[in-house]
Amino acid sequence: MRFFFRSRQFRIIITVFLVVLILSLSFAFAGSRMSPLTDAAAIITAPFRNAYTAVENEVKDFITAYKGGNDLMVKNAELTSELNDLRQKVSEYDKAKSENEFYKNYLGIKEENPDFEFTPATVISHDSLDRFFGFTINKGSASGVKVRDIVISDAGLIGMVSEVGTTTSKVTTILSPQITLGALDTRTNDSGIVSGDTQLSDDRLCRFSNISRSSNIAIGDYVSTSGEGIFPDGILIGSISNIGSDKYNASIYADITPFVDFSDLRNVMIITNFDGKGGIEPSGDK
């Protein structure tokens, strides 16, 4: 063994390792970018992953169709789309109703968000070792995607971009404790903070905390982003499934069931720009 440690091969190994280490860390800490080696590997393997994902989706669809019948699948898709529309309408109605009363007396009526700029993306791989259901999408800096861009689906908020390559990006979901965002109950307008939790993530839930004890939130209420920090307001997150008190009884918390099914994501939308982007950076972010 001593002979190996004194050999030229060992010196080459040390040199290569130090170069790779410095390269990876400098790109990571200077903007959460993938290192050039990883980026190149992502570009080279992207066609294979796209092909594999297409095959995987076909297999999943076949299995679903075999189990439930094609008709049921079509009907389910129609009903799910209708349900998402209705949820959005209920949320907008509740919000509009309370905003109308509040802003009529004190401020102007808030406008809708025609300022959002979207980029569609497809999920090309899921990381089974990531207990928070993180995944990789097929859009990167070449398509205008940047770190901390918000990722949504037609069902609601998914998370944000955590690392960007040239043609791919990695997404961290709201189930991860690394993401915290301001949120509010769309019915009562009570605000709090939504963040992931390592224990709740097993049940695919996240935590809505720091809610005032005088609030009137109830199970079944919808929760949406409040516009604080880097997340724009008005994006649905999920519904309240459980309510409890923190250990000091100073505030209450709620468990949220996200509307998004993180295990079956295929197509997502990235919000690359909106008015007011570039707010306070979230805590705990890498």
Binding site: F17, V20, L25, T38, D127, G134, F135
Partner: peptide, 20 residues
């Protein structure tokens, strides 16, 4: 390198640890 391009790990975690 290939694992880091697919996994959701950051800062080249596998690029650093797998060779070791």
């Amino acid at each position: 390198i290939i694992t880091d391009s697919v996994a959701t790990t950051a800062f080249g975690f596998n690029t650093i640890f797998m060779p070791l």
